[in-house]
Amino acid sequence: MKRHLTVIGIAVIAGLAFALYNLKYQVHGLEARRDALTQAIAAEYESVRLLKAEWSFLNNPKRLADLAKRHLDLVPLDASRIVSLDDFPRVSRQPSGESSAEPATRDAKTSGTGTKWLVGAHTVPSP
């Protein structure tokens, strides 16, 4: 009985020691991995900062204006291109075949249903 207990005790201690040893090395490994990851993440943060700066640099209004001038047919928006719903002729909404042939009427109908694309750029109601 006594001997058994001793043997079991020694076995348990050996087992525990081994487990502890193992765990310790696992933790070592994990720590090394964590440090590597931390460094990688820090480097990643640094590149994000760099890319943000780069993005801001590339979005320089002067550069964009130059690119738009060279590659696009677009021109800056001027006031004459902004119209409000009141600028369209008001028409009756009777479903008659003749009136819908007129372009102005069609515009008015589109707007009448609540389509807001015409005034998409507005954030301020006209004074």
């Binding site: 001027d78 006031a79 902004i82 750029a121």
Partner: peptide, 13 residues
Amino acid sequence: IARIGPLLGLSPG
């Protein structure tokens, strides 16, 4: 003014 008016979202009056 002509350039920033539309930029700032002001509708012409």
